[in-house]
Design a protein around this nucleic acid. Sequence first.
DNA 1: GATTGATTCCATCAATTGATTGATTAATTG
DNA 2: CAATTAATCAATCAATTGATGGAATCAATC
Lengths: 205, 205
Amino acid sequence: MASSLEKAKQNPDSMKAKILTAARKIFGQYGFHGTTTRMIAKAVDIDISTLYYHWGEKGDLYEAVIMDVSEGMRQKLIEVEKIIKGRPLAERIRIAVDEMADYLFEHPEISNLTLFRYFTKTRHGSILDFKVPEYISDIAYSMGLAEDRKNVPADAKMKVLSIMNSIHNFVSGEKFFRPMMKMDREEYIKAAKDTLKFFNLTAFT
Amino acid sequence: MASSLEKAKQNPDSMKAKILTAARKIFGQYGFHGTTTRMIAKAVDIDISTLYYHWGEKGDLYEAVIMDVSEGMRQKLIEVEKIIKGRPLAERIRIAVDEMADYLFEHPEISNLTLFRYFTKTRHGSILDFKVPEYISDIAYSMGLAEDRKNVPADAKMKVLSIMNSIHNFVSGEKFFRPMMKMDREEYIKAAKDTLKFFNLTAFT
DNA sequence: GATTGATTCCATCAATTGATTGATTAATTG
DNA sequence: CAATTAATCAATCAATTGATGGAATCAATC
């Protein structure tokens, strides 16, 4: 059964998909309460009622956005796991950091929305409290921090959380941190990757 | 010259200070756009016009809140720097992590508001684009990552940013991460500190 | 080419939200 | 105590915002 979200993604030129793409970006920049349905509609150059026709109420669109970025992350993690499989740990870390950083710097709204979800309360709590699968245990297993995918020790999960969040921090914080560092975008991405590798390579090798 | 903010803090029982305290908490939970002036007024049990009488427009109150938490951080960092002065590096790290984590877990709105400021756009950009001093260079110097307080290399700043954000992540993410870890609050704080020490001790000693 | 269904927009609602005005009460001062 | 100032609230505004109904347009089907 193809969900409403899956159907929308099938044809990226469909109005439904175009709205989703714009919503990802704007929700990512301004958060749930900072985004109005009119902002999204304007970005797609449609009337706001067209947006409601396709996605229903704001909270439903937001949920679809979260599911969408979450699925993107899942795919990317599977892809990275394939690449690093069998390699020595130091190399696994270097590749994983590079791959994830490149992916997220290219889609910063993923980091933004992820951090938003972690840190922010919404006034409509119950409505937006849908469940999203997290991949912390899988990453821990893939890093060799657990013998068993289903039974990952808490300290390993905490380490993975810390690593993932650190990547998100550099991506989402670019607008704020880069001027502090007086770097151009390329330099900043390089510096972020180096910093991440510095902490993770010394910690795990 | 005592600023409006300083005057408010002189007497914590004053209406102005009570509003500021409530605003800190609520802005920290819901962000700028997720907070209404009515929510704050209700928390203090006053009419909304009383709030406006004391603090003027919403953006001005928000600015005062940011300045307030920023000043709190500055004070705490000075305090920590005094404690760790002269000790060996590993001990400096252990103490600093414990002190900062305890302080922030006690005042989670500081972490919330800091991360909000890093990651979120506000629709009223220009108005809320006031400048707040950051203490990244001071911390880098205090950690021995720079010879000169005024001339801190970029990679050292990036490392400090990463460390500080990691602490904020665990504090602000508690509501989200702790259920994942199935820990009570005490266990979670301990686990967060241990994780932070794990990365930082292996990286710097 | 008429009919049906899907899509889009215009107009509009009711509720919320930031902000103010003016009257009222509480403190302060001479 | 009278007079002035400070603090509070009730009432209200205008603008914004989430959401909808219904007319108009477009596309597919017969």
